[in-house]
Simulated scan of single mutants.
Amino acid sequence: MAVRVLLLGAAAALFILLPAGGSSVMPGGIAPVDATSPEVLQAVHAAVEHFNRRSNETFLSKMRRVLNAKEQVVTGMLYHLRVKLGTTNCRKTAPNIDLESCQFHPSPALAKTRICKFQIWDRPWMGPMQVTLQNCRIV
């Protein structure tokens, strides 16, 4: 009888801990997320901005495509992204550039395509998103 009550209690606790909708992702777990969601696109924007600030390239890069997006509930949200970047025709030194208006560079000699892995930590109560990992390779 005691074992049965214990099992029922454990099952009830598990049911209470699961989020509404039946998702089995627990806090700290990593789960796929829609790459077109506003939150993911905001994280991509932060990652690309970070990449451009830190690169030694003459031209800015922008996103070609989100290849993979996952989220992890931590103290806030940690986004794990794999993004394809392309070199644009906009120089980093030009003032007041709207990256969205930049075109991908037409010259094969200057155009570079990169696959980047980013981790972006979003804690809205702490200020802007933080890029905690950037690892890019030219393809």
Rank of each mutant, 00 (worst) to 15 (best):
N89C: 13
Q119A: 03
V73K: 11
W121S: 12
M63Y: 06
A109V: 08
F59T: 00
L110E: 13
T88P: 06
F104Y: 10
F104H: 02
S107L: 08
N68P: 02
P95Q: 02
C90I: 07
R65E: 14
T88R: 02
L78I: 03
K62F: 07
R54S: 13
P95D: 01
N52Y: 14
N89Q: 13
R91W: 07
V74G: 11
T87G: 04
T93I: 12
R91D: 06
D122V: 11
V74C: 09
E100V: 11
G86M: 09
Y79F: 15
M63F: 06
R123T: 14
G76T: 04
S55I: 07
R91T: 10
R54C: 11
I115N: 06
A94K: 13
D98A: 13
Y79Q: 00
Q72I: 03
R54V: 12
T88V: 07
P108S: 09
F104K: 01
V83F: 02
N56R: 13
A111R: 14
R64F: 13
L81Q: 01
M77N: 03
A111N: 12
T75N: 08
T93L: 12
L110F: 09
K70L: 08
D98W: 07
F59A: 01
A109E: 09
L85P: 05
R123Y: 07
P106A: 06
P124Q: 10
L99W: 12
E71Q: 14
M63G: 07
V83R: 00
V66H: 05
L60V: 09
P124C: 12
G86D: 06
T113W: 06
M63V: 13
A94Q: 12
T58F: 11
V66A: 09
P124R: 10
L78P: 00
K117N: 15
N89M: 07
E100M: 11
S61Q: 11
R54H: 14
D122F: 03
K70N: 14
L60F: 14
R91H: 12
G76W: 01
A94V: 10
V83P: 01
C116Y: 00
L60K: 08
P106W: 04
P106R: 06
Q119Y: 04
V83K: 01
S107Y: 04
K112L: 13
R65K: 14
N96T: 02
W121I: 04
L85E: 03
G86R: 04
T93R: 12
K62L: 08
F104T: 04
G76V: 02
T75G: 11
H80P: 04
W125C: 08
H80A: 05
T88D: 04
Y79A: 00
A69N: 03
V74A: 10
T87I: 04
I120Y: 07
K62I: 08
Q72A: 08
C90V: 09
E100Q: 14
Q72R: 08
K70M: 10
C102T: 05
K92M: 11
L99H: 11
F59R: 00
T75R: 12
